[in-house]
Amino acid sequence: MTDRSALQIQLEQGIAALGLALPADAVPRLLDYLALLERWNAAYNLTAIRNPAEMVTRHLLDSLAILPHVRGETLADLGTGPGLPGIPLAIAAPGRQLLLVDSNGKKVRFLREAIRALKLEGVRALQSRVEEVEGRFDCITARAFASLADMLAWGGHLLAPGGVWLAMKGKTPDEELAGIPPAFALRGVHALTVPGLGAAERHLVVLERAKA
């Protein structure tokens, strides 16, 4: 078990390196989320990452790295798993309506407990396949669960006109860019530097839906 104060220092240094200014209670709440995830992970195998310090890097800081690109009043996090990047984003930038979507029942049970335990206002968890979700959102986040073409085929209907889709990828998905449907415009591919990840590649593909 890693000492919480050591995790706090690691997290605070990472947030500073990302140049983010978060609410005063964000760091303790992010660590509470991590502790809850670690506890549930022992029984439910929600994430392959077991080491708490590695979780700070690969889960919390990796999620927070996209915060400058998040916008709008409503956000859907598709294929969220145990709440990544959705829950860190909800803690770091509260105030928007946020829907966490996953098809895995045990992960959604964890999400609902996390929402309750962390008192995350405006956050809901839904067990569903992406293509069956209804609604329109200003912003959609998705950690690389599929190719860009597949992601947009399954979930593109959820993005409001003028909304942004933030696809979190590893290497630059150059070969996938040609598969972006005509209704979506590529607004940028950003290399992300996640503190503590070293040479591991992280890229954010920003897409915008054409206004009707």
Rank of each mutant, 00 (worst) to 15 (best):
M1Q: 14
M1G: 14
T2V: 11
T2R: 11
T2Y: 00
D3H: 08
D3I: 01
D3E: 13
D3A: 10
S5G: 02
A6W: 04
A6C: 03
L7M: 14
L7K: 06
Q8K: 12
I9N: 12
I9D: 14
I9Y: 12
I9M: 13
Q10F: 05
Q10K: 12
L11I: 04
E12G: 05
Q13C: 03
Q13I: 05
Q13M: 05
Q13N: 14
I15R: 11
A16P: 11
A17L: 09
L18F: 03
L18G: 00
L18E: 03
L18P: 00
G19V: 04
L20H: 06
L22H: 09
L22Q: 09
P23R: 09
A24R: 10
D25Y: 00
D25S: 10
A26E: 08
V27L: 06
P28Y: 08
P28M: 02
R29F: 01
L30M: 13
L30Q: 12
L31A: 07
L31M: 01
L31P: 06
D32C: 07
Y33M: 00
L34V: 12
L34R: 11
L34H: 13
A35F: 07
A35D: 15
L36H: 05
L36A: 06
L37I: 09
L37P: 09
L37Q: 10
E38Y: 07
E38G: 09
E38L: 10
W40V: 06
W40D: 12
N41S: 00
N41V: 03
A42Q: 15
A42T: 15
A43R: 15
N45H: 06
N45G: 07
N45E: 05
N45R: 08
L46A: 03
L46D: 04
T47S: 13
T47V: 12
A48V: 14
A48F: 10
I49L: 02
I49Y: 01
R50L: 08
N51E: 14
N51Y: 01
P52S: 11
P52Q: 03
P52H: 02
A53Q: 07
A53V: 01
E54D: 15
M55F: 09
V56A: 06
T57L: 00
R58Q: 15
R58M: 09
R58S: 14
H59N: 10
H59R: 08
L60M: 05
L60Q: 04
L60S: 12
L61E: 10
D62C: 05
S63N: 05
S63K: 06
L64I: 01
A65Y: 12
A65C: 10
